[in-house]
Design a protein around this nucleic acid. Sequence first.
DNA 1: GCGTGATCATGG
DNA 2: CCATGATCACGC
Length: 219
Amino acid sequence: MKIPPPKSEAELIQRAENLKDRSLGELALLMNLKMPENFSREKGFIGQLLELVLGASAGSKSEPDFQTLGIELKTLPLKINGQPKESTYVSIVPLLSSSLIAWRESAVYAKLRRVLWIPYLFDKASHPQDWLIKAPILWSPSTEDERVLKNDWQELMSMVQMGELAQIDARLGEYLQIRPKGMNASARRQGLNEEGQAIATSPLGFYLRPEFTNKILMP
DNA sequence: GCGTGATCATGG
DNA sequence: CCATGATCACGC
């Protein structure tokens, strides 16, 4: 079952709204996919299932999922109280960007300028096939959201570019944080030290804090 | 091997 | 309980 990409934002929204109150098992059946035996391993399954169902196209590229529409797709697991259960991965942290990057030219902005959020109820008490999809939210950051995101991004990227990797941890950033993003703790990438020399470091990613995605759910 | 899709697992 | 740091599968 191959779903073509949506031709317009309106078509994408309509598709997404048709998924409301449906279960993950239904969608997997529709796409002729088997639900994973071990969900704690295939962690990306739900995101990939929704990409397929909605006709997303970017694959593993560093671009928004719906390239021609400029829209990023994000699934968002909710606790039973309706609040986000986890942070949301945005993109890899560029460790070797030699020149200064403008916020609006960044991968983070490219992905966050317009996001289709698909929330779903993550409930450990039931099987993932019974988890329900909630109403989609097509979102763009408000002026104030963008101000904070840009500020976080600039402060964190400044540290990366100044070679202050040792001082970066997940406590920095109001909405946007940096955390490891690799196969495991021994994964290595090339970064810079304070002298501008190449050093080995962990691969890092930008993540949105759950406090922020909760504001998106309850504007 | 790297980036995307993310969630897991433990300490405090 | 929850955030931080660690981890897993897949496509290319």
